[in-house]
Design a protein around this nucleic acid. Sequence first.
DNA 1: TCCTTTCCGTTGTAAAAACAACCGACCTGT
DNA 2: ACAGGTCGGTTGTTTTTACAACGGAAAGGA
Lengths: 219, 219
Amino acid sequence: MEELVPVLKRTKLFSGVGDENISTMLSCLGARLIKYKKGEYVLRQGEYLSDILVLAEGSLHIQKDDYWGNRSILGHIGVGEIFGEAYVAPDSGTLLNDVIAVEDSSVFFFDVKRVITTCSSACRFHTMVVQNLFFAISEKNRGLVQKLNYMSRRTTREKLISYLSEEAKKQNSSSITIPFNRQQLADYLSVDRSAMSNELGKMRDEGLLEFEKNHFRLF
Amino acid sequence: MEELVPVLKRTKLFSGVGDENISTMLSCLGARLIKYKKGEYVLRQGEYLSDILVLAEGSLHIQKDDYWGNRSILGHIGVGEIFGEAYVAPDSGTLLNDVIAVEDSSVFFFDVKRVITTCSSACRFHTMVVQNLFFAISEKNRGLVQKLNYMSRRTTREKLISYLSEEAKKQNSSSITIPFNRQQLADYLSVDRSAMSNELGKMRDEGLLEFEKNHFRLF
DNA sequence: TCCTTTCCGTTGTAAAAACAACCGACCTGT
DNA sequence: ACAGGTCGGTTGTTTTTACAACGGAAAGGA
């Protein structure tokens, strides 16, 4: 476990807590490290969860099977990412997704009770961890709300407009660079890549915008 | 302010904290009560926020104007609801939406620093409020993830299938009751009501499901 | 350099959705 | 009983999307 402490140092959960304090906190937080072989389940849909998890090594997929058995991959978890934190509330019900190891992986488990209940004053940085946890879930929240904003539009054009519009506000310029290539943008907005490319072409022809690769200019 | 304490008692933020303790906590949390006339802005897009808010009276709309000036209403805040909590992190940037009073309203402001930094032991219930806050944002998170799940499907049929499928799992039965009428369900899934009604009809004809009003049975 | 792969714009077709309009069933208040 | 309103199913038309297929530009490796 100790050899993976440097990884924890760089995570959002332990931001601002020095290495030397992390080792001390591990026991206070009830930390356990569990290793998974490629293909093994880390979490299963329908289980209850009482730990907050941090991926220390490897990579994971979040996936889901529906009532009729169709499987889809919802997302990816990389080293240092926090997950499971939205399902540890007493009334959160069971997990809705499976989490599976894409390669051999190691996961830290932190008992939520020991995380959110500040322990004795021995552990000065405990409060900071609780704050970090709150900020981390806040950040996820903001990302979800934004995406939902784009996705609730009916047409590809409207999705593009709302997305680019938001980026322009965020980057405070009508000339913006986006962090996606075409396929990724299409996936993000849940539309077909070629249809989206087509629509971008039309919008350019109509003088709404210009673009080159992942750089856009709005008019 | 005191006359609105009974409202706070029934909110998720103060769940488990007795009335008598709430009054005591208000000062410890740096609470302020601000009243708004109908039509006034409570929050503006582009502002930084350092308070967690709870609506005590009235009702609010969350709305948004895009780069080209089109306005849309994203949601509604009712009495007792917590809002703004996702934008108080130090690196959360500015607000993405406006919040406006639909009728005369009163809003409690709690300084986030005083909420998440546990105060001296005088305030036994402070820890509980922090937990409640975390659980509240968790709950929002889960709702957002679910909705995103449904909305990321390409066709109305797939959206319906994923939604009903999830409800069936949640209610642990193939016979389910949903909390929406047709228009609300269409709005929730961001599709056209009549097209959705049409699709439901086809799915029934194909033997995938049966329904009557807001009760569905899956096969 | 040549080969392969990735990226992305384009086109045509088939499928699906949006939209508008209409109708009947059911409430509710008068 | 009647008028007005809500709800939801149906239909036809138009618009938009998904899908499949292709080709050229650019990047990267052997």
